[in-house]
Design a binder for these strands. Sequence first.
DNA 1: CTGAAAGCGCTAACAT
DNA 2: ATGTTAGCGCTTTCAG
Lengths: 342, 342
Amino acid sequence: MTTNKDITIYDLAEELNLSPATVSRALKNNPIINADTRKKVLDLAQQKGYRSNAFASNLRTQKTNTIGVIVHELNSYFMTAVLAGIEEVATEAGYDILIAHSNETVAKERTNAHNLFNKRVDGVIASLAYDTDDLTHFEPFIKKHIPLLFFDRIDNSIAATQVVIDNVEAGYQATKHLIQQGCKRIVHATANLKRNVYADRLAGYKKALLEHKLPYKEDLVLVNDFKEDTGKLIVEQLLAMKQQPDGLFVTNDFCSAVCIAELKKTGLKVPKDIAVVGFNNDVVSRMVEPNITTINYPGKLMGRTIAERLVQQLKTKKNINKQEQIIVPSELIVRDSSKRKK
Amino acid sequence: MTTNKDITIYDLAEELNLSPATVSRALKNNPIINADTRKKVLDLAQQKGYRSNAFASNLRTQKTNTIGVIVHELNSYFMTAVLAGIEEVATEAGYDILIAHSNETVAKERTNAHNLFNKRVDGVIASLAYDTDDLTHFEPFIKKHIPLLFFDRIDNSIAATQVVIDNVEAGYQATKHLIQQGCKRIVHATANLKRNVYADRLAGYKKALLEHKLPYKEDLVLVNDFKEDTGKLIVEQLLAMKQQPDGLFVTNDFCSAVCIAELKKTGLKVPKDIAVVGFNNDVVSRMVEPNITTINYPGKLMGRTIAERLVQQLKTKKNINKQEQIIVPSELIVRDSSKRKK
DNA sequence: CTGAAAGCGCTAACAT
DNA sequence: ATGTTAGCGCTTTCAG
């Protein structure tokens, strides 16, 4: 029946006839301390189950060694990979991470930002919610010179380090691929064009059309959100068109999977009647039939890259909240959903 | 160019000619404080952008108002729903949550447990990793009377509140359904039988067979993990059997989706040649063709339930770490992957 | 190389 | 209803 009062540096100091200061230094491996002394302290700490009180330490040092991460969703392989990447780098550099997910709403994102601010995180990494366009909730970080970095879903109205893929290029590659497979009328199903990723992919789509002398028609661009039933809706919109499209570029794998299922229900063959390209290389793209051609996104690399950047800023105090864009590679993965030629 | 030194209660006190104590009380809405005084304090705090320093407060009160949540994965709708449920209740009760994911490894789970312990969370909610069988890393919480609760992936070697579904019943329902669809040789593809959920579902499978006078054959039970390629493996094992099975109960929707895809590749028809039932009601179960019959799991309810329990324990200091099991409802959802009869 | 002492910001007895 | 005071556990000058 241990009573479990916490052990403090005073307890250790007393038992070893040292001052708390020395114990503190020893515990931090301060080289100024005699090796023997340090060993004695470390051993006793171990034996007594000492654990540092982060609050006291944070209070004193005004640092938390914590990085806040705001994401718009949690349940995708992409996001999990990003988080894993961030975690690896952060842990190695001695930072903990605090995950807050906004569930795709600005309101929640705002709350999360305030929360992390009040938690006094040393830095923030964020990917914006679907409908965020007002970024005032991030200003407190800027004002206090707390590093704020964005990945994937970014916004240019705040100067910050941004880690992204080249969405224009990705949209271009996807569309070009469909054109090369013989598609002439390509529908582009996407989401909120205020969000950089979707705007850029549309730009890529346009670029590919132009380059191949295909007309850009506004009514072939379908803007919806990506809720569970959106795929159904897209197929309905598609079927309602006077002239049947022969290509479909959806900027989301989940949604493209639903589209394919719906298309098949109507008797249309994928890719024969309509070739489909998705986005993200989510597991689902390898699960449905036909397997979905998609754009691969290096989640883990993105996570590592942005975390490394942040750690660097934290260490050097340099380049904090300075506009800078880092592009990580992305690539088209061709699978059966779009293959019409050998 | 605000210098942004943080505002403290001393700053407010000075400006209002009050003592820090009064300011502190006013900020906490202590009813003993004069309403006018309180208003003055609150207004000034607002105006000056005061934010409470949680470290000082935690250090003083020895509480963190934080709940640690350890989960074995992040990217499933089930888990996201659970987290959302926990968050709702926790937020309402004034607690923050700290999410740590073990990525299905005991090693990471152990680290996370230590981390949360060092972070001095007020309570812990956990769902065990795939291969956790030694729970010593949770003992520090017990020793310090920190409430520790489990959901879904539980273990009976530690006395704790557990929130689960009735896995025996779920396994029973799934199997019975297959039997009712005319299946005679039902393969049960599952995972680590040390983990309660899988052991219980197997028990349900056995019970259904017994009840319908079908023989239980050990070689029809396939134990694997649920990695991405496991579905392929399962189908291989299945095809290698001398006598072809006509039913397949997989305790994971992702995996059952892969199985269905693989079965189709070999020319077998689902459900005609082999009827399939999955588990979890993940989105993917509605995405592949045929849609997968599965067991629905009320994630959000589970999250809310366990968080309510924890908050209660925290408020009352009663029933902490006492063995108690709460069962939330689950149900079979019949879809096309198993429907052989009208 | 080690120690003394102050202070980070807040809260809670204990006064008044 | 408000003020005084001490202390939570740690780090860090400054002194020795």
